[in-house]
């Protein structure tokens, strides 16, 4: 019986070593397969503009039941922390627009009476609310 357990343990160890080796090789050969790892890059640099801003609005027209959309929001939150991103609330001095297209973002910015401040080629737009900016101390 003892031998049976030992053999089982050896088989488990051998199987795991083999599976792990294949996993590592796969990751080394195809590093781009890693999930969600560059989503936050689109927000790089914004932390400098936002400075010590405590809360910033985050508007998106994406379906937030979609894993990729939530992942992007969460990575934006990580990158911009300690600023808190207030999802789909636009009554803040700064509002980030992460929309399905730049056109949708610009239309929404106009509709809300905001002013675009910075945009990048991935469709992320940072807008300011002139009325709330004037109220800032």
């Amino acid at each position: 019986m003892r031998k049976a357990v030992l053999i089982l343990l050896i088989l488990c160890a051998a199987f795991n070593v083999l599976q792990l080796t294949l996993q590592i090789l796969g990751h080394q050969i195809h590093p781009s397969t890693r999930p969600f790892h560059s989503l936050g890059d689109q927000f790089k640099g914004l932390e400098v503009i936002l400075g010590h801003e405590r809360t910033v609005g985050y508007y998106t027209d994406k379906n937030m039941d979609n894993t990729l959309a939530i992942a992007q929001f969460e990575q934006a939150q990580y990158l911009l922390a300690p600023t808190v991103l207030d999802l789909n609330q636009t009554n803040h001095p700064f509002v980030l627009f992460d929309c399905t297209s730049a056109e949708v973002a610009i239309n929404k910015i106009k509709e809300l009476g905001l002013q675009p401040l910075k945009a990048n080629n991935t469709g992320i737009v940072l807008a300011i609310n002139p009325q709330l900016q004037n109220l800032k101390p």
Binding site: L6, N16, V17, L20
Partner: peptide, 16 residues
Amino acid sequence: ISILITVAVFTLALGN
């Protein structure tokens, strides 16, 4: 046995 157990547990791909 202690080595076998440690290797089996800590080489698990999911665990890794």
